[in-house]
């Protein structure tokens, strides 16, 4: 279980996070929605350890992470850019986390092979990142993180730069992976549909405050989440289609 307690962060006079609290069970996904600049990415950066909060605590299984360096937190941050290492092949990108832990070559090869097959990358292992499509790059990025079995995945709009079809494929793949690997994930997105598809828990960040919704209905009904507006929009589209004269 992870717990974030009273996280606060200010840049100059601007309050970005103002007492953020939440608890997330192991293997669950919390989706955080919110407008651009609402502090979603800042929250993830604090959890990853790239920045320190001004106040508050962050615990994994009861242990405070604040003084643990990012490399030892077992918290993986994935952004919308896949950030593959451009000078390493797909196989080497996938095995990077294992090789720096000096695991035996045989174990590394086996685990890379197994994961590559699961991600549909088994025929791409020899390729360099610039030879892959956007979706394939994200698969490698996911695989590279999954292979080290982190405690938490921090996903910062990971599918935002993908085309519509690839994005849907990746959402489905993520759904499968999170169940298979029992991933504990904090998923930041401004896409309400994506949030509804992927989340166990939903939350909205606005004005530095995080509102966590216990029920999906509460999320949908909340004016803060923006879901109401999106639902209204689709309802109107549906109504327009129903009233369209048949040709």
């Amino acid at each position: 279980m992870i717990a974030v307690m009273d996280f606060q962060k200010k840049y100059g006079n601007e309050i970005v996070l103002d007492g953020v609290n939440f608890v997330l069970e192991k293997g669950k996904t919390l989706c955080v929605t919110g407008a651009s600049g609402s502090g979603k990415s800042t929250l993830l950066r604090l959890l990853a350890g790239w920045e320190s909060p001004d106040a508050g605590d962050f615990r994994i299984a009861g242990k405070s992470m604040l003084h643990i360096p990012p490399s030892q937190r077992k918290v993986v941050y994935l952004s919308q850019e896949p950030l593959l290492f451009p000078h390493l092949s797909v196989a080497k990108n996938l095995s990077y986390g294992l090789e720096i832990r000096r695991l035996p070559g045989k174990v590394v090869r086996e685990r890379v092979g197994e994961l590559a097959q699961r991600l549909g990358l088994d025929t791409q292992l020899h390729k360099m990142p610039d030879q892959l499509s956007g979706g394939q790059k994200q698969r490698v990025s996911f695989g590279r993180s999954l292979i080290i079995e982190p405690e938490i995945f921090l996903l910062d709009e990971p599918f935002a730069s993908l085309d519509h079809q690839t994005r849907e494929e990746m959402q489905v793949l993520f759904g499968e992976l999170r169940l298979t690997f029992s991933m504990t994930t904090i998923f930041v997105t401004h896409d309400i549909k994506e949030a509804l598809m992927t989340a166990d828990q939903l939350a909205t960040l606005k004005g530095g405050k995080l509102t966590v919704f216990d029920q999906v209905q509460d999320f949908l009904a909340s004016p803060e989440s923006g879901a109401r507006k999106e639902l209204d929009f689709w309802t109107r589209i549906q109504q327009l289609q129903q009233h369209e004269p048949q040709q």
């Binding site: 990853a48 790239w50 990012p70 490399s71 030892q72 077992k74 918290v75 993986v76 941050y77 952004s79 850019e81 950030l83 290492f85 990077y96 986390g97 720096i100 832990r101 590279r144 993180s145 080290i148």
Partner: peptide, 20 residues
Amino acid sequence: QLYQQAITLGARPLQALSGI
């Protein structure tokens, strides 16, 4: 970001520097 990605995957700063 690539450096931070390496660190987030568990590399120590020197490993990230020399390997990436």
